Simulated assay, not measured.
Amino acid sequence: MTAKVQPSSPDPFHAPAGLRERKKLKTRLAIRREAYRLFREQGYDATTVDQIAEAADVSPSTFFRYFPSKEDVVLNDEYDPLLARALVDAPEDASLVSVVRTGIMGVLREVLRHDRAELETRLTLIRTVPALRRRTYDQQMESWQVFAAAFAERTGRPANDFELRVASASINAALSEAMTMWAEGGFLADPLDQLDRALGYLQAGLRTEQ
């Protein structure tokens, strides 16, 4: 049996149809927006959940219904399900890397158009806050599982298939390294170009020019 991709949160770029889901999305994004503002203004460690909740005009208990901890405001996002859907819906005759290359580029393009400042804040926090760095591996494993589930649905193989796991881990590592290098360079380079180069390197079979 192949794994099914189940988005865990609403599409952040297109409002959900139901009123309840629209309200939930609005609240979730408001909490994250205010949290990032406070992190930029006073630092991650100095910002409390109570301060974030007050700034977002919600109670602390409401905060914890959306995010299990302050760390999860930074580490959790809505983008993996979008990418997974793009991978599943791509043409059947396309290779996995080419499908990912097109899908990731499309999602990143939307993220940059809608949430570039928040993405830069997120990457900066992950690089500079030890508590977030320690949890990055877990977050990357979750992304890897999303890739594996999407590939499994696409190919009909089980999600724990050896080749699918290697492909998922390799693609996730390329994505992570491209974003890390973008952040290390002060966000001056074109992130789409860096990501395209990283995935192109994988697609070319990891060949280097002499």
Rank of each mutant, 00 (worst) to 15 (best):
E153W: 04
P81W: 00
E153A: 11
D89F: 08
E54V: 13
S95F: 00
T180G: 11
P60C: 02
T208H: 04
P81N: 01
A53D: 12
Y66L: 02
V58F: 05
D161C: 06
T208P: 03
Y44T: 03
E71R: 01
D196M: 08
Q42V: 10
A35F: 11
E41P: 02
K70G: 01
P130G: 03
R134Y: 14
A152I: 12
R154S: 05
E41V: 06
T121M: 04
D57L: 04
Q139T: 15
Q203D: 15
R20M: 04
S8I: 14
S9T: 12
T128A: 07
N160T: 11
G43R: 12
L75V: 04
T2R: 13
F39C: 08
L195M: 15
P81C: 04
A86N: 05
A30K: 13
E54H: 10
L25G: 00
P130S: 01
R165T: 10
F64A: 05
A117I: 11
S143K: 05
E78H: 05
P60R: 02
Q210E: 15
G185K: 03
M181P: 01
M141A: 13
H114A: 07
S8K: 12
R109G: 05
Y36N: 10
T208F: 08
A3Y: 06
A56T: 09
L19G: 02
A204C: 13
T2W: 15
A3F: 06
I126D: 09
A178K: 08
K4N: 10
L132V: 10
A35L: 14
L199S: 06
G200V: 14
M105C: 04
S95K: 00
M1C: 06
L164N: 11
Y44V: 03
D196V: 04
E142P: 05
